[in-house]
Design a protein around this nucleic acid. Structure first.
Lengths: 236, 236
DNA sequence: GTGAACGTTCAGAAAACTCACAGACTCCGG
DNA sequence: CCGGAGTCTGTGAGTTTTCTGAACGTTCAC
């Protein structure tokens, strides 16, 4: 899955240092090259200098709002797609029109995996050259990101949004034990402040839908005191 | 769907920056090469310079109206088709006569998919070389853009204009989940400011007409918390 | 002008979802 | 075999989402 060299170059723009760091770090870890800016002015300069493939752009910036930044970018001939970060209650109002180009948006607070998934989706849509299939496969389990659908042995499995995100995270890390806090950090919104026991609940839900057959070896396995793994058959 | 190289070169002319941007962005994303101008003078210059295949032209411009622009274009030997943007209350007689050549018009406020569809229709009519079929097919569901007709298993289904546009948008994105705001942005007029619940209503209407057979697997499916998809059977 | 078709909005019911809590169960060391 | 930590799962409250029907407005044909 990982290619040689970075997947794409991203420009992250947010005035809150915490969020900017959070995003930069996890996007970098996800294989992207990342440059960041704290306001609209710097964002425009960075876009000029680095020619990113996509920008992650907070709509609320100290000097000018995200739409203005986008307009200025477009005016100077930059046509890379933008993923907007909006507050949840901005929806309906200002968000309209954000999805007309290749652009998209996620609402704050977001979950990290969600952002990565949306970035990949936008890039896939705008530069279809990279035949990233959008389908993740582990044994006879398939997860189709575009259709937002999961199949086991060809049979569709209905999952709730959270169940879907959790399974997606597990499938992206097959045969790797993931701790409950790791899972929490990736799948739940970044400001979630319940405790990790909810992961147990959702693992339980998932098992009921994914690991039904009592004869087949379970895909989702518990590592006591450590976390959970998605085990493939091949890998023993 | 995406070809190598742009589909055609368009000239967008509108004095309102928002509309100009909105059009440019979504047309560019639809695969066209776009240049734009804010008034008649610039439009004539741009036409001379870029030799577009079609112009999208607001009839109300600050310096001269769209018909004058067209006349001057024709006078200087430019015979590419024009898609006029007119206000809804423009008198019939002004608009009449627009559809006699290859030209066509849409009324403001328009929906983005409508404009794209009209542009494609005009280009198809004027340069029939491109064998764009104008018929979109998903399983046994056919949508004929030219005839403005929908058939399921050969049987014609009567749809209202909005139902037709909605189904069209779904059929252009089979097996891809579309959020309610995405749908709103593409199918409804750009200045629509109701909320997304109207999408739910129209999906409901569509289902009643398109997914009648309770035995057949439903084409239109809800992805709770995410949006709606048009599912094909083949896609497994 | 009148009726029919179409479009929009609203409101309520039903269904689904998220999450906390708590008791039951399992594993493991001693 | 016991106890405790860790894990699993049922229950239920609160919220969100979806669906539907009905009311109201607009447009169009006659």
């Amino acid at each position: 899955m990982k290619k040689t060299g970075p997947e794409a170059k991203l420009l992250v723009v947010d005035d809150e240092p915490n969020i900017r760091e959070l995003l930069s770090t996890s996007l970098r870890f996800a294989g992207f090259e990342v440059v960041s800016a704290a306001n609209g002015r710097d964002a425009l300069a960075a876009a000029e200098l680095h020619a990113p493939d996509l920008a992650v752009l907070d709509v609320m910036l100290p000097d000018m709002d995200g739409f203005t930044v986008t307009r200025k970018l477009r005016a100077s001939g930059k046509h890379f797609p933008v993923l907007f970060l909006t507050a949840k209650d901005d929806t309906e109002d200002k968000v309209t029109g954000l999805t007309v180009g290749g652009d998209d948006y996620v609402t704050k607070p977001f979950s990290l995996d969600e952002v990565v998934a949306r970035i990949r989706a936008v890039l896939r849509r705008t530069q279809p050259l990279l035949d990233d299939d959008a389908v993740i496969r582990v044994d006879d389990l398939e997860l189709d990101d575009d259709a937002h659908e999961v199949r086991r042995g060809g049979v569709v499995i209905e999952l709730s949004p959270t169940e879907f995100k959790l399974l997606r995270y597990l499938m992206l890390n097959p045969n790797r034990v993931l701790s409950k806090s790791q899972i929490l950090d990736h799948v739940w919104e970044y400001n979630f402040n319940g405790d990790a026991s909810i992961v147990e609940s959702y693992i339980s839900y998932l098992r009921r839908k994914v690991d039904i057959d009592p004869d087949a070896p379970a895909l989702i396995q518990t590592k006591r005191g450590v976390g959970y793994v998605l085990r493939t058959a091949e890998k023993r």
